[in-house]
Amino acid sequence: MEALKNLQKSIVKSQIWKSIFRVGIPTDNRKRALAMLGNVVLHLHPIKVKKSGLRMSYTWCMGGTAFFLFLVETITGILLMFYYRPTVEYAYFDMVDLREAVAFGIMRELHRWGAHAMVISVWLHMFRVFMTGSYKPPREFNWNVGVILLVLTLLLSFTGYLLPWDQLAIWAITVGSNMARATPVLGHEGPGAALLQIGGTKLIHVGSDARFGLIAGRTIGNGTLIRFYVLHCVAIPFVAACLIAVHFWRVRKDGGISGPM
């Protein structure tokens, strides 16, 4: 027992340990404040919070849950990328492998169920913010950032839906992307598309309209798969991560977790 305590002491007092953790376990108020200021993860938080804003009965912990699930999706997503090849030939069979042959074959499940849970928790976070009137001044801008994050969450989930390349995937994306045909002016079956023509040559047709740009072809195919893969794994997560940073920053700058004015 004594030996263990000595070992702990020598670790905590070592130069390596001290170089990483500047402040030990906080025992007084000064150290509690320093712990928040000195740690890059913890400094997302203020040093002190309103007692009312701390209550789970008030926040439902939904924003935090959504962020946590975003992290879960990032980590499981990176793991899945080690086995997944985004081409029509391999995509489906890599899915089968992920399910049958890969060790700890629940990564795909974690990723998929995490995505469902993330969508629901983002909705509920918005619902809570509405019900407490927390979008009111001075938080109007942050509500807007939140709405964009909600849309990005749905887009992340939608682009990921195609990747298994099974019947469920391609038909859901067929139905979902076909609406782009009918985009006003920019879709070849949308109102106003006929206006864009030069001397009888149509500028907007099946090979040049909004849907063509979205799925990179006239039908869902290899171009669509690689396009959705890049959007799902890199482009949208990148934008979402930036906006999450803005969202958190503005929570702090607009007065912390909302409370009665």
Binding site: F212, G213, A216, G217, R218, T219, N222, G223
Partner: peptide, 12 residues
């Protein structure tokens, strides 16, 4: 950037 997203060659 927008034009880049519209492929010139299709394998259909």
């Amino acid at each position: 950037w927008g034009r880049f997203m519209f492929p010139n060659v299709l394998y259909e």
